[in-house]
């Protein structure tokens, strides 16, 4: 048997030899540069009202992360469903590799893409923020410096995306339809705060176990507890359970299901 890394290499080729992937990365870089520039040219009150470097950086990334999530979900959704719609799954699964390993290689390549796209975004947003920021030092946020706060913010956004991508990956593996996987994950991404409001854990005790209540981790940066006294540890636990559940379902279905026409 050849090395497992060559499976990941194969999956990476499938992602990066498509023009689409490079268009997505280009758009991410473009947005990351665009927003600092917009903030710069549209601010009215002279250099005093300009945002500091890290403030600028953080605001840009908050916006760009929506797009980053969408693109990562697109890659996640196509990862398994694409092979089925192209019909190439038949040639992929008749190699001397177990289905579990093939699925794992797909998942790893997806995580690698999400890291790359996030890195591209951060790099360009930082560069643009350097150019378009005032010399003012960014104000501290709570007990954190502006730099620390921006980094924690990015980390929380990344986790939110990470969970959403896992959901898309699961739907892609179970239903073998990338459209459904994209639609469903984006629906959850955009409506989770609404669900969190409707099913407020302060009103319904069971809402504590809904994924929507926990997806937005940003609140824990400045506060120890969330609504109804939920702690960060509890949120992390619930998210971890959901995450494992998503991957387990994806794995179980991919391994067991017949590949017919």
């Amino acid at each position: 048997m050849s090395e497992f890394t060559s499976l990941i290499h194969n999956e990476n080729i499938k992602i990066y030899s498509r023009v689409r992937t490079w268009v997505m990365l280009f758009i991410l870089a473009f947005i990351s540069v665009l927003f600092p520039a917009l903030f710069h040219f549209t601010s009215s009150g002279g250099s005093a009202s300009l945002m500091g470097l890290w403030e600028n950086f953080q605001t840009t990334l908050t916006i760009a992360f929506f797009l980053n999530t969408i693109f990562t979900v697109v890659i996640a959704s196509d990862s398994v469903a694409g092979e089925f719609s192209w019909g190439t799954i038949k040639l992929l699964l008749i190699r001397p590799w177990s289905r579990s390993k093939i699925l794992l290689s797909k998942y790893i390549s997806l995580v690698l893409f999400s890291l790359l796209s996030t890195a591209v975004m951060m790099l360009f947003a930082y560069g643009a923020s350097l150019i378009f920021s005032s010399g003012n030092a960014s104000a501290n946020v709570g007990s954190f410096t502006a730099f620390e706060y921006a980094m924690l913010d990015v980390l929380c956004s990344y986790f939110e995306m990470f969970i959403t991508a896992a959901l898309a990956f699961m739907v892609s593996s179970v239903f073998r339809a990338s459209g459904l996987a994209i639609g469903l994950s984006l629906f959850i991404m955009f409506t989770q705060s609404m669900f969190a409001m409707i099913f407020n854990p302060e009103r319904y005790a069971w809402a504590k176990y809904l994924i929507f209540t926990h997806m937005d981790l940003h609140r824990y940066i400045l506060s120890d507890t969330g609504p109804a006294g939920i702690t960060f540890g509890f949120s992390a636990l619930v998210l971890g359970v959901y995450y494992l559940l998503f991957l387990l379902v994806a794995w179980y279905v991919f391994r067991k299901r017949d590949v017919a026409a």
Partner: peptide, 16 residues
């Protein structure tokens, strides 16, 4: 499966 080479129905390849 290491001893097998196969085409099942039409050979679908990565078109890109």
């Amino acid at each position: 499966i290491a001893n097998v080479g196969a085409i099942v129905e039409n050979p679908e390849m990565y078109k890109f």
